[in-house]
């Protein structure tokens, strides 16, 4: 562990706290994945690690690398922006896919398609079959 010895104290202490906070948040999120009961509740758990947890670890990494290389390292901002944009997209897609599957199987615990939307779909289908 050579490079760690060169980290000054002003950077080491906040970095240590941030790294621990980030890792604990990610762990709590993963434990939530085990403890929560239904799929829709479990979807909430990973966001804990991907938003706050990731932000803490990336901040710590920025602090340590800035202290080691003297000039500020903004590299980590890329990962932060990328994760912030993509996690909602994946979780949203998963929630929609799950809702679709639950509706197709007729499970009771999910809200069903509203009546007017169903009619619209039927009309659309008719229009499509009429086109063919």
């Amino acid at each position: 562990m050579m490079p760690l010895e060169n980290v000054p104290a002003w950077a080491a202490v906040p970095a240590a706290i941030l790294v621990l906070a980030g890792a604990s948040l990610a762990l709590i999120g993963s434990v939530g994945l085990l403890r929560l009961r239904s799929f829709y509740e479990r979807v909430h758990a990973p966001t804990l690690g991907t938003s706050m947890g990731m932000a803490c670890v990336l901040l710590a990494s920025m602090i340590v690398f800035s202290a080691l290389q003297v000039r500020p390292v903004l590299h980590e901002l890329l990962i932060a922006v990328f994760m912030l944009v993509t996690t909602p997209v994946t979780l949203m897609l998963l929630a929609r896919a799950s809702l679709y599957r639950d509706r197709a199987e007729g499970n009771d615990e999910v809200p069903q398609v509203a009546a007017s939307q169903k009619e619209a779909e039927v009309v659309e289908e008719r229009a499509e079959s009429g086109m063919r």
Partner: peptide, 15 residues
């Protein structure tokens, strides 16, 4: 502080 940081990193990896 070096041992503090190294310990924190190790603990974080275990978590």
């Amino acid at each position: 502080t070096t041992t503090l940081l190294a310990g924190a990193l190790l603990l974080a990896q275990m978590l």
